[in-house]
Each structure stands twice: as C-alpha cells, then as structure tokens.
C-alpha cells in the first residue's frame, strides 16, 4: 500500500510535468512557429474567419441565426446567445447549441418566428437559415443559403441579382478534397467581397 502510494505520487508528478506542461508548451511552440495565423485564431481585420457573426443589416448576407431573433442573448430568459464564445451582448456564457429536441414546442415557435422574419424580407428560407448550429457561431452557409438571400441583399444594396450570383459563385468552396462535408461559403469573406464590390 505504502509502496503503491509512493510510486503513484512519483508517477503522477512525472505525468504532470511531461503530459501536462511539456506537451502543451511544446505543442504551442511548434504551432506558433509552423502555423501562427491558425494557432492564434485565424484573426483578420474584421474578425476571425472561423467565428460567425450576427449580421445586423439586410445589406449583408446573413449566417445561421445563432444569436438572432428568438436566439439573441437574453439574460431574463437565460439565453446566452451563441455569437460570442465568451461574452454575448454582455451575458457571460459559453459556446453551445439550443439543445431543443425534435418534438419541442419551443423549437416550433422559434422556427416559425424566423421563417416569418425571412418572408417579411422577401426571402424563401432554406433549412440552415432557420436552424441554429452546433457551436452557436457557425461561420459558414451553403451556396443555396446565400442564393435565396439575393432578393433581400439586392434590395438593400442596389447591386443587381446577376452580379450577386456571380459573387456567390466566386466565393463558394467546394467539398474539401472533393468529397468531405458540404460545399460552403464563409459569410465574413462573402460580405467583405460584397463591400469591395460596392
């Protein structure tokens, strides 16, 4: 027993030094040398290309409604909002999905509200535009999600639909390696390209 205890303490200390400290520090060192941009969060002048934002104006293409409409941060209802991984509109929280089940009345009501919002802006929404993501800040939408928003964006910006269609095509990433996941657009990059166009 005493022998087990002594060995356990020695082994636990050795593990802490090697697997806790050295692993994380060496990993950080290698990551910072090889991939400094990615390792620090893929930050650009307008935000991180990996963290979705809530697009406040109909001049911009919208992403998933993670912090929007019924899902916007609301301290009274205990909704942290998904947009900011740490602080959403002043409410402290973490990343996360809504966790609403497939037969939840709340989910039905929230989705109705979002569908109505899109219809009021002349958009026939796709699934991604009325459902929230797993992380709470999905940065991407599919090409179809962008195409259906053309009437809204065109009306607010005055850019012709044909030009927006070309813009969407130019910003579309195919499936990774040709077969992985879904085709997608990074909403931040899309809107940055739209800003350059204007």
């Amino acid at each position: 027993m005493i022998l087990h205890l002594r060995r356990s303490i020695v082994f636990a200390v050795a593990c802490f030094v090697v697997l806790g400290l050295l692993y994380a520090l060496a990993g950080t060192g290698v990551a910072q040398v090889l991939f400094p941009h990615q390792a620090n969060g893929s930050l650009t002048a307008d935000g991180s290309s990996l963290i979705g934002q809530t697009w406040t104006s109909t001049r911009w293409f919208h992403g998933r409604p993670d912090n929007f409409g019924p899902y916007a941060a609301n301290p009274k209802q205990g909704i942290a909002g998904g947009d900011n991984p740490l602080v959403a509109n002043g409410v402290k929280g973490g990343s996360g999905p809504t966790n609403l089940g497939p037969r939840s009345k709340t989910l039905v009501a929230d989705t109705r509200q979002l569908i109505a919002w899109w219809h009021a802006h002349g958009v026939d929404p796709t699934t991604d535009l009325v459902t929230t993501s797993g992380s709470g800040y999905d940065p991407d939408i599919t090409p179809q999600d962008a195409l259906v928003q053309i009437p809204m964006v065109s009306k607010a910006t005055g850019v012709r639909p044909a030009v927006l269609r070309r813009l969407i095509a130019s910003q579309t990433h195919g499936r990774q390696l040709g077969f992985l996941g879904s085709p997608y657009l990074d909403v931040l990059a899309l809107n940055r390209a739209l800003a350059r166009l204007e």
């Binding site: 998933r64 999905p97 809504t98 966790n99 609403l100 089940g101 497939p102 037969r103 939840s104 989910l107 039905v108 009501a109 929230d110 989705t111 109705r112 569908i115 929404p125 796709t126 699934t127 991604d128 009325v130 459902t131 929230t132 993501s133 797993g134 992380s135 999905d138 991407d140 939408i141 599919t142 999600d145 996941g181 879904s182 997608y184």
Partner: peptide, 23 residues
Amino acid sequence: NPAVAAAGLAHQPTGNMEGKEVR
C-alpha cells in the same frame, strides 16, 4: 427535423440541420 417541418419548412433537402454545422 419534425419541429422545423411543423413550423412550415417541410422541404429540408440538407437533412436535420438543427444543432449541426454547415461545413
């Protein structure tokens, strides 16, 4: 997703995307 369908979006060609990431 049954709840999303009940809210008025029956056609969900990309499947149940509630709580899923586009990529």
